[in-house]
Design a protein around this nucleic acid. Sequence first.
DNA 1: CCCATAATTGGAAGCGCTCCCAGAGCGCTC
DNA 2: GAGCGCTCTGGGAGCGCTTCCAATTATGGG
Lengths: 337, 337
Amino acid sequence: MAEDAPRRQPTLDEVTELAGVSRSVASRAINNAPHVSRAKREAVERAVRQLGYVPNPTARALATRQTGAAALVVSGEDPSIFADPFFAQVIVGASAALEEADLHLMLCLAASDRSRERVGELLRSKGADGAMLMALREHDPLARMAEEAEMPVVFGGRPVGTTPRWYVDVDNVGGAREATEYLVSRGRTRVAAICGRLDTEVGRARYRGYRDAMLAAGLDPLPPQEGDFTEPSGAAAMAALLANHPDVDGVFAANDNMGAGALRALREAGRVVPVDVAVVGFDDLAVAQIADPPLTTVHQPIAALGREMARMLVALISGQDPTPLILPTRLVTRASA
Amino acid sequence: MAEDAPRRQPTLDEVTELAGVSRSVASRAINNAPHVSRAKREAVERAVRQLGYVPNPTARALATRQTGAAALVVSGEDPSIFADPFFAQVIVGASAALEEADLHLMLCLAASDRSRERVGELLRSKGADGAMLMALREHDPLARMAEEAEMPVVFGGRPVGTTPRWYVDVDNVGGAREATEYLVSRGRTRVAAICGRLDTEVGRARYRGYRDAMLAAGLDPLPPQEGDFTEPSGAAAMAALLANHPDVDGVFAANDNMGAGALRALREAGRVVPVDVAVVGFDDLAVAQIADPPLTTVHQPIAALGREMARMLVALISGQDPTPLILPTRLVTRASA
DNA sequence: CCCATAATTGGAAGCGCTCCCAGAGCGCTC
DNA sequence: GAGCGCTCTGGGAGCGCTTCCAATTATGGG
């Protein structure tokens, strides 16, 4: 049973020979293509089983000009951005959808010039059948690389400045507006926004939603208190806010990490949440439930984001022309507001 | 400048022609191989630039029998296991190390039979130059697949039952022992363990460390209170513990998620941490810092785990025979104990 | 100035698979 | 019984690159 000769992988030709058919027939049989008689098909199947033959994906890729893989590129200036559990969920969704199309997932963390350069080469060399780009920042070189590459590309979230042809995004403006409206509806009038980096579209859009809601309610929006989406930056922003606007009674944080940071800063400053200050976050990650008090937050369908990106990419690869998609958010109320 | 003809990628032959050299020379020049005169090398470089030539990785892969990619396989019975931020950090480390060797990262979430089958095929067909396997459970079919595939394979953590030839692991027993010893050293005598799934080696090893430390201190170890590494399971385990052993005064949780859950259950039961019950976790993820009170925990070098796995794999791929590695842990004391 | 030696060079054979195409075989119809 | 439209079949030409090898040219010592 066990040969331990230094055997190579068996090739199609060996199957061909054992089954007594031509290469074309063997190839067709293996790919379940038509025009193969029942007898030959079975002969091929038998030979395949006997030899333990597995098609060589590289050779197939060369012949078909399809690699069978899609890249998920996460930009950022250092790899720590990827530590955000957000991406893990995107991956879960994308991975599932790619699997349906029998594509493999290539993950590229484009956090250094070197790695960005490698991504560029991947795109230009058609090292994948398509790519999903996420977390692009302003003037991100990846945007141009993607444009120049003649490869299907789907954006996750819109990059700052331009609106790509194909993207999946979450309704950031709407979600932020809803969060702010909720705070206002609970009687808060001095509501501040701890926003994410304003060189990202998410950061801007969520601030815009806050501002719109404030203006619509006849309240004065405060200028953006910028953080970088991390917990410490949220705490720092909250501290700054308390220093400049001691009378703040509501806070909209542009994500849960910063919301959790704000909660901590408030606790350290002796403010009671939600009595003194109500806080709403964005994302609805695990941290929102674990936070104390649990964080009222804007839920966004993260796995669905990944899934839809992948589906859109698959559609693109198969020659269709899908339309961009904006996924809805919904407010999840917990104890913090 | 901009041709918008439906141009294919330029091929080596076109470079060859433009530079006026043979294919061999062009190939050597492009790969920085020796035996190319200065003049021809420059001619090739010029042609490459002029044509915007990028080597086709698939063709190269077919010729060299090297795909230029390594797979990271995360097993599990459903994809949610991947939501654990643990993996994100492993990926950050692995990705960086692979980049140094100019390898791409293929991520496989093997959470269904279908996806496991695809991984098996990837392994058998040599669709990657090597693979890193993580989170294998007892009788995990991936173990056999990996064994049968003649492909370099590195394990992250040891699977239950067997000790693979190449692996990188964390000192789970030592870490758990240290955590328990610390609790004991703080005067706790009725220390319980909330352990992870006992069909994983991590779960077993951490319980073993707890038990060893208890026995060494002349205390009675409690039977394992099993959770599944999630926050809710930690809370449930803690509740069960309080019901069966109301006098418990110390808890070692096999990871931070469950530690956070225990904290919540204790709070809900009116116990004060660390006065009534001291709690120690394991992992030192972000949740440990955010928890209230902040969780004393066993820090493990997660990114380093990923990095070392990747390095070991690279060594294996390049024909070396590296030795298994066990990474040290260290206790980080915070307010919970 | 000639020959041994080393550095370059280009031809050509793969790597393993897909797929176009022409030809063969076969059952019908008219 | 010839002609037509099928389905099958296998030959062979790629896909784009690496690399072995024999041939060519450059180098240099005697």
